[in-house]
Write a protein that binds this DNA or RNA. Sequence first.
DNA 1: GTGTTCACTGAACGGTGTTCATCAAAAGTC
DNA 2: GACTTTTGATGAACACCGTTCAGTGAACAC
Lengths: 207, 207
Amino acid sequence: MGITERKERQRAELREHILRVARDMVMKEGFGALSMRKLADAVEYAPATLYLHFENRDAIARELCVRGFQELLAALEPAAAVKEPVERLSRLAQAYLTFGLERPETYRLIFMEDAKLSAELFQDKQHGEGPRSFALLVKACEDLKAAGRTPEATPAEQLAEVFWAGLHGIVSLKLTCTGFQGSPAEVLAEALVATLVRDPKPGKRAR
Amino acid sequence: MGITERKERQRAELREHILRVARDMVMKEGFGALSMRKLADAVEYAPATLYLHFENRDAIARELCVRGFQELLAALEPAAAVKEPVERLSRLAQAYLTFGLERPETYRLIFMEDAKLSAELFQDKQHGEGPRSFALLVKACEDLKAAGRTPEATPAEQLAEVFWAGLHGIVSLKLTCTGFQGSPAEVLAEALVATLVRDPKPGKRAR
DNA sequence: GTGTTCACTGAACGGTGTTCATCAAAAGTC
DNA sequence: GACTTTTGATGAACACCGTTCAGTGAACAC
């Protein structure tokens, strides 16, 4: 009875194939330019066939979103492995920027498209690559705080949110408001890290 | 020969009427939901008539963008009038957030839609409400720097860009990634200001 | 009164997402 | 092997979309 298994496998393969082609099209021309008909054409099936594998166009977007977050997490992880908190923050910032600016359409899809898309991906705060990516920033800020190098009154979690917001702001303004920001993204990232980090206080070191 | 004048006035009035209706529709359902046909229906003209007043749908978006930036500038100006730099920064942040969160679709239109839209509005760095809004932030950061309360190495302009990016990040993440940020926007705004501002250094006051 | 201008429109073109009855081939059953 | 059932795939349709353009009728100029 390997038939049902084979069918299931073929079905999964086609689904995967559709998603890969869709991903390529989105990366080239953006999600807005992805039409079900063009996608069907590209995979050499009739448009209606796509609906046997995905509920609708949004379902494809959702799937691509998940993969986008996986890529983001993968892009951040090397930087998150750095021990020294300040250096780690800086590396995380650079990695985030590089991801956003080199994959603009992916970035737009996961962070600047419809709210419904990314909202549900942040529901489960434990699993999911979105929350896990954020957790890396939180950890970095906690370590920074433990080293006594953050503004005292601000909790690490809030600091991480401000950090993420800053990074997202830099990337998304570069993507939409072309030519607004005067400074290069890397410079802004460094400036952002500089605002977060406080000089170590010699008086507190003995404590 | 008041006829041509009257015609011109009527023409301008209709154009204005179309824009007002378009603005209402965008504020209610977002720019994506604004269709030329529905707009034509709402103003009780045939769709083709709209093209006698606007080159295409994007031209309407551009016009609404300009108005959006005017509203943003108007929202920021009271806060910009505050003397004390730290307080001013805080007020600017709150005003920016309020604007973004209370007019989400306007905000999306001017900052999160197509790059072409806002790009050209930031070409002329002197005039235009976009650059002038940004100038308010730059001035605030310059005054903050003059008071010796910024990170020393970072120029005021860069600081302003980081500030704007932070604000934009907070607003746009609230708009797209609903439920991602744990903290309320106002709290994050305060935290953002806190990261930018340094304690006054008593040693430098005498200088 | 006649000619001209011009705001306006209906209909069309080519595109979109989505649905559904239909069909042929594969799988299951005897 | 013949018959029935299941099922992957589809063509055609529906209701939208932005945009164009020939045509029309009323207001204007003379």
